[in-house]
Simulated assay, not measured.
Amino acid sequence: MSRQISEAAAEEERRVLGLKPVLAPVHRSYGEHPSQVYDLWPAEDPDAPLVILLHGGYWRYNRMHLTPFAAYLAANGFTTVLPEFRRSGGDGGYPGTFDDVALAVDTIPAGRTYVLAGHCSGGHLALWAAARGLLPAESPWYTTDLPTAVLALAPVTDLAGAIREDLSNSAALELLGGADHAESRLPVTDPLTLLREKGSTGVPTVVLHGAADEEVPLEQFGDYMAVHPEAELVVLPETGHYTLIEPGSPASRAEIDVFARLSRHEKG
């Protein structure tokens, strides 16, 4: 089914996604594939906390819409990395998208502690990356070298729920390679499924969403919290889905405080 949104939500989407992209001062590769690249906005302080930011777009679209927010984080004291990765509709989806996110977070920090963040489907990928320690040890994505902390902004947390709700025209099915493969791939790609038996990732986790989000069903956030009781839920009143990544919005200012708090966690 297609989701109906209000005119106010539609205007918010147009406003935020219509912001002019901000070119990064540094552009590098983390792998050999053309999509395995990242933009880097260094903060003024060379010892500033590091944030790795995973973009949304329902696993289909590129990172450019998130460049204004990445630049905003850097201007507020966080050295910010915005990776690209292979995406659905090209040569991404399962397993390429997951291969790339794992490679990016394993290599870009180069031993530094970092906060991993993501918006919408990027929030899904951030929560998944923080749960890689729950994967079977034989999985190529398994690792115990996890982020210092995670901030998921209006994340897709439940791929099975996204399939049931047909979010963004079967985006989750496309990510997993279609209906014939989805069920068998959920156990290693879905944060909710990974947590059901384990209960915690061991990574300090904040799920933040706007109470007026019309893009991602609110059940996504509640269902995730039910299986990860150690996570923290932050709800911003009168806040929509895209305002979370709008530089200078009240939501973005609140997020700066959360990033600062999470960046002070010591890696276990």
Rank of each mutant, 00 (worst) to 15 (best):
V206L: 03
T143S: 12
E12H: 02
T113Q: 14
V188S: 07
P83D: 10
K198M: 00
V16P: 02
A117F: 12
E165F: 02
E84F: 05
N62L: 02
D145W: 05
K198V: 02
A8M: 13
P95G: 13
L73H: 08
D145S: 14
A130D: 02
L208K: 09
T107S: 10
L40K: 09
H209G: 01
G56F: 10
D91T: 04
I256L: 12
G240W: 01
G118H: 14
I5F: 07
A179W: 04
P217D: 08
L194N: 01
N169R: 14
T201M: 06
G90H: 15
P250E: 14
V115A: 02
G178E: 03
L53Q: 05
C120V: 05
R60V: 01
G123H: 01
G268V: 15
R87T: 04
L116V: 07
A154T: 10
F98P: 02
V22W: 00
T189P: 00
E214K: 07
A171N: 01
T67Y: 06
E214W: 10
G202M: 03
I52V: 05
S2A: 15
I108S: 03
V207W: 14
Q4R: 06
V26F: 13
N76K: 12
Q220R: 07
H33N: 04
E138C: 08
Y61F: 13
G90R: 14
E219G: 13
D39E: 10
E230R: 14
S200A: 13
E238D: 13
P49E: 06
A212H: 06
P237V: 00
D39G: 08
A162N: 09
K20V: 00
V101P: 04
